[in-house]
Amino acid sequence: MHHIALTDQPIDVPAVLQAAESDEAGAVNAFIGTVRNRSDGRRVVRLHYEAYPPMAVHQLGRVAEMAQEKWPMLRQVAVTHRHGTLEIGDVAVVVAVSTPHRADSFAACQYIIDTLKEVVPIWKKEEYEDGTVWVSAHP
């Protein structure tokens, strides 16, 4: 089962973890991505996330399906990504998965966050004290 969401409100982290729970699982593994105050040595003031909502939700579902194919023992996959303006320390994304045993839960969780970063149409703009940059936009 997949629980996919995109929100412009603060992410309810316990709710995402709860969505990943399963009586058949001995492991719930979560990745929580937060806003860091430095990037390449520059002080980051805040982040602006822009999303293409219908495609982002669709592609998040695809990533969850691909994870399910690679790890058929996955019980639950829950992913919530935030968009809008985020301050330092805010939670930008939560990925939570459950599996019967822990090794698979680590691997599946890492696969989902790594693949999300490659394919899901969400864009991050870093704001510094003296300007802004769209992350990874240029070679």
Binding site: A92, V93, L116, K117, V120, A137
Partner: peptide, 12 residues
């Protein structure tokens, strides 16, 4: 078609 231009993504 619903068409969009997708520059390098940077979510997460």
């Amino acid at each position: 078609d619903e068409i969009a231009l997708i520059p390098p993504v940077s979510g997460g």
